[in-house]
């Protein structure tokens, strides 16, 4: 039996209610001041001491870096949750066709290069750890789809270490700068750019590996 959903009268009343909600909220948005700079002036004023040249990266890794640290923890915890729920979906034995086998050989090196570029680019323009991690994760998914399997020796603590590397480095830096600046995550200015790049590099790597691990749908090598 396929799930059907709600009865017609219920659908109608829900729809009516939501149209009302939409109209009310749209009216609220129309009433907002048409011009507002938000926090843009404050960000611009502190860009010189942020260690990077791109405002979004400055907010993500410096001004609101604490949010980003916790958000990396969210991604890691989701992966832990997935692992606790089920072992990895067993791979099929199908051998990919010639096209499919050739594809990753051409694409994956390019994608890794692209990820590295995006990471580097984040300091001055749109880019950074998340974009790089997403491309890296996509490369991993592509490999998995074309018959590549995670080697057994990489399934144990090595994989776990890669998964926590991003949050781990973030936590390490957050606490290590306390003696120098007196405050959590307060990067001393001369090394701010370097520290941010260091965090981003490991964060990008961890995000990529985590996305690939999530795609496996469970813990590789685990049994139930």
């Amino acid at each position: 039996m396929t799930p059907r959903g709600a009865a017609p009268w219920l659908r109608f009343s829900v729809a009516l209610l939501l149209v009302g909600m939409f109209a009310a909220l749209a009216w609220v948005l129309l009433g907002l001041p048409p011009r507002s700079a938000g926090l843009q002036p404050q960000v611009a004023a502190q860009m010189a001491v942020s260690g990077v040249d791109h405002p979004v990266t400055a907010v993500l890794l410096n001004f609101r870096g604490y949010d980003t640290l916790l958000e990396m923890a969210v991604l890691l915890l989701a992966c832990l949750g997935v692992w606790s729920l089920s072992p990895a979906v067993p791979p099929t034995d199908e051998t990919p066709g010639a096209m499919l086998a050739a594809l990753p050989r051409q694409l994956v090196p390019l994608m890794v290069l692209m990820a590295g570029y995006l990471l580097w680019r984040g300091a001055t323009g749109p880019g950074g750890a998340f974009q790089a991690g997403a491309v890296l994760g996509a490369a991993g998914v592509l490999l998995l789809l074309t018959g590549w399997r995670l080697p057994v020796r990489w399934q144990g603590w090595r994989l776990r270490l890669l998964l926590i590397a991003g949050v781990g480095m973030f936590v390490l830096v957050a606490l290590a700068v306390v003696p120098a600046s007196g405050v959590l995550l307060g990067y001393p200015l001369p090394v701010a750019g370097t520290l941010i790049l260091l965090i981003e590099a490991l964060a990008g790597l961890s995000i990529g590996v985590t996305l690939m691990a999530l795609f496996l749908g469970g813990e590789p090598g685990a049994s139930r």
Partner: peptide, 17 residues
């Protein structure tokens, strides 16, 4: 909605999060 100049980067960072 910034009058003239770049958009406010803070919501962009929030959306990435």
């Amino acid at each position: 909605r910034a009058p003239d100049g770049p958009p406010d980067p803070v919501p962009h960072a929030m959306v990435i999060t």
